[in-house]
C-alpha cells in the first residue's frame, strides 16, 4: 500500500513553482502513483501568491486537492501564511529565508536553506526552484533522487540542462549538510 503524499510548492508568481510540481508529478507517476496536481495564481504574470500542489495516492483519490501537507516549499513571504492549518505536524517545511522573513510557525520542522543564494552563485536566481527540487528529493523518504533527476532531465530544454543538473546537485548538497548537521 502506497502512502498518500501531499506536497506544496509555494512562493511568488514567476518563481517556477509549477515546474517544480511538474517534475515531482512526473517522478511520482513513474513510481506508480496516481497524481493530482492543482495550482493557484494571481491574474498577474509575476508576483503575488503562487502555488502548485500535488496529491499522490494509490489510485484516484476521493478529493484531489491538498488538505494535509507533508512537504511544503516556501520561496517567498507571499506564501508564508498560505498553508496555515493544513501542514502536518511531521511535515517537512523548507524555506528560503532571503525572501521569507517570517516563516510559518507550528509543531512541524522548518528548515531554512539559502536556496536563492545558491542559485545566484550558480549564475541565475531563476534556478532557485531546481535547487529546491534537489533539497526535497534528497530529504524526502518517499521519493528516490534518481527518479527526480530523470524527470528533471526529461523536462529540461537542452540549453538549460547543464545548469539545471548543477542546480539539482547543489540542492542535494545543501540537504546533505542538513542531514549531517
Amino acid at each position: 500500500m502506497m502512502k498518500n503524499l501531499e506536497m506544496r510548492f509555494s512562493g511568488a508568481g514567476g518563481q517556477g513553482l509549477q515546474l517544480c510540481a511538474k517534475i515531482f508529478s512526473r517522478a511520482l507517476t513513474g513510481e506508480g502513483y496516481h497524481v493530482s496536481m492543482s495550482q493557484s495564481y494571481e491574474p498577474t504574470s509575476r508576483g503575488g501568491l503562487s502555488r502548485a500542489d500535488i496529491v499522490a495516492s494509490d489510485g484516484t483519490p476521493d478529493y484531489p486537492l491538498t488538505t494535509d501537507l507533508n512537504t511544503v516549499l516556501i520561496l517567498d513571504q507571499a506564501a508564508a501564511d498560505a498553508s496555515e492549518g493544513i501542514i502536518r505536524d511531521d511535515a517537512l517545511v523548507i524555506v528560503d529565508p532571503r525572501r521569507t522573513k517570517n516563516p510559518p510557525k507550528g509543531k512541524f520542522k522548518v528548515i531554512e536553506l539559502p536556496l536563492s543564494e545558491t542559485a545566484i552563485s550558480l549564475g541565475s536566481e531563476r534556478v532557485t526552484n531546481v535547487v529546491a527540487t534537489g533539497v526535497i528529493a534528497e530529504l524526502s523518504d518517499d521519493i528516490e533522487l534518481e527518479i527526480v533527476e530523470r524527470a528533471l532531465r526529461q523536462s529540461s530544454p537542452k540549453k538549460f540542462l547543464d545548469m539545471n543538473m548543477d542546480a539539482l546537485q547543489a540542492g542535494v548538497d545543501l540537504a546533505r549538510g542538513v542531514k549531517s548537521a
Partner: peptide, 9 residues
C-alpha cells in the same frame, strides 16, 4: 477553475 486547471493521472 480548480477542475479546469487540475492535472490528474
Amino acid at each position: 477553475e480548480s477542475l479546469g486547471h487540475l492535472v490528474e493521472t
